[in-house]
Design a binder for these strands. Structure first.
Length: 350
DNA sequence: AAGCTGACCAACCGCACAAAC
DNA sequence: GGTTTGTGCGGTTGGTCAGCT
């Protein structure tokens, strides 16, 4: 059975909201509160769909919204959260005060995804944020450059620019948007996850929901998840794997209880690797990585569990910081733990 | 100056899910 | 248990703006 339309669409207005409509909606909600979106347009006297009213209120009219450019700090947070959570914009927005999912989604699609795409991790000479990398054969015919590209043009000295006022405004705009908060690190030693993703793509095994890890480009501070992916990669080197259910796009992993084996499973239950305790010890003696149960348990592709573990009880927006030398530094209220991911997991603090 | 083009972003659309009936 | 309703989410669209030729 199909869902009924959210409202009777005939005769309803679409497109941009006028100031008058905004005023009506704002006053109505101030008097009657949020909710009952389906009946709201009729009661308020708006020729709009209820969903449209809800969207307008949530994204633009709420008093607690923060307008203006995304700060460098916010941008860095978005990148980190997206690396862990994927396109779960509402969850990401929940950790950015005053920002909406729509705003973050738009910002990601128009700014960040392109920025990250244009960083070639294998080329340390590549300039981050350089637009049109890889399109050298296609001569640009027109159109507005992205803000980073305009900044770059400015830095290279555009003697032909005629309008100094516009030029100055663009410089200000670019500076305010980019600031110094986000550091794109072109150092190859910090690009293991990128390499890993590329390898997985080449091997045709990128089928899990963390294809979004592609965006986990060499920003300083790899996520825990990418670290775990790297561990998986090492295990694959020990025993080549193929994910159990590539086609579904919903491959998951779980630990096996049988015989104390440590296993990775696909959604259809097919075991793709299993190491019992002895094998694990042997592999570790050979200096090879293995996956332990606690590691596997922690890998929750649905991310719900991860959300709780990361955020529950932690008021700070991002509960840890990374140190490239020592590993992860965790700060969570009463304790501080320094050490590697292994320490963190085995100490059971997550 | 005009047309073309890409960037940006507000808004729409369809789907999923939970609650109510 | 099946259906309806309300709400939220993420993907996509299309209008507007501004730089380029």
């Amino acid at each position: 059975m199909g869902r009924a339309p959210c409202c009777e669409k005939i005769g309803l207005k679409k497109g941009r909201w006028t100031a008058e409509e905004d005023d009506i909606l704002t006053k109505y909600i101030a008097a009657n509160g949020e909710g009952s979106w389906r009946s709201l347009p009729k009661n308020a006297g708006l020729l709009r769909c209820g969903k449209s009213c809800r969207l307008r209120w949530i994204n633009y009219l709420r008093s607690d919204l923060k307008r203006g450019n995304i700060s460098p700090e916010e941008e860095e947070t978005i990148i980190k959260l997206h690396a862990s959570l994927g396109n779960r914009w509402s969850v990401i927005a929940g950790h950015l005060s005053g920002r909406t999912d729509n705003e973050i989604k738009n910002y990601w699609n128009s700014h960040l995804s392109r920025k990250l795409q244009n960083v070639d991790p294998t080329d340390s000479n590549d300039k981050p944020f350089d637009v049109d990398v890889g399109n050298v054969s296609t001569k640009r015919k027109g159109g507005r450059l992205s803000k980073p590209a305009r900044k770059k043009n400015k830095q290279e000295g555009d003697a032909t620019r005629k309008d100094d006022k516009v030029h100055e405004n663009h410089e200000k705009s670019a500076q305010s948007e980019e600031g110094e908060g986000i550091v794109i690190d072109s150092d190859p030693q910090h690009t293991s996850n990128v390499t890993f993703v590329q390898q997985r793509q080449q091997n045709g095994v990128l089928g899990g929901p963390n294809e979004e890890l592609e965006c986990d480009l060499p920003c300083r501070g790899l996520t825990m998840e990418s670290e775990l992916w790297a561990k998986l990669d090492e295990v694959e080197a020990v025993e080549p794997l193929s994910w159990a259910d590539e086609g579904s796009g919903s491959m998951s992993m779980s630990s096996s209880e049988e015989s104390g084996a440590h296993a990775v499973k696909g959604v259809d239950g097919e075991k793709v690797v299993a190491l019992n305790g002895r094998e694990e010890e042997e592999e570790e003696q050979k200096g090879r990585a293995t996956i332990r149960n606690e590691d596997v348990q922690w890998m929750d592709w649905e991310m719900e569990d991860m959300d709780f573990r990361l955020w529950d009880g932690v008021n700070d927006m991002w509960p840890w910081t990374w140190d490239n030398e020592t590993g992860v530094v965790v700060e969570d209220g009463g304790y501080q733990l320094e050490g590697t991911l292994d320490n963190w997991l085995s100490d059971g603090l997550i």
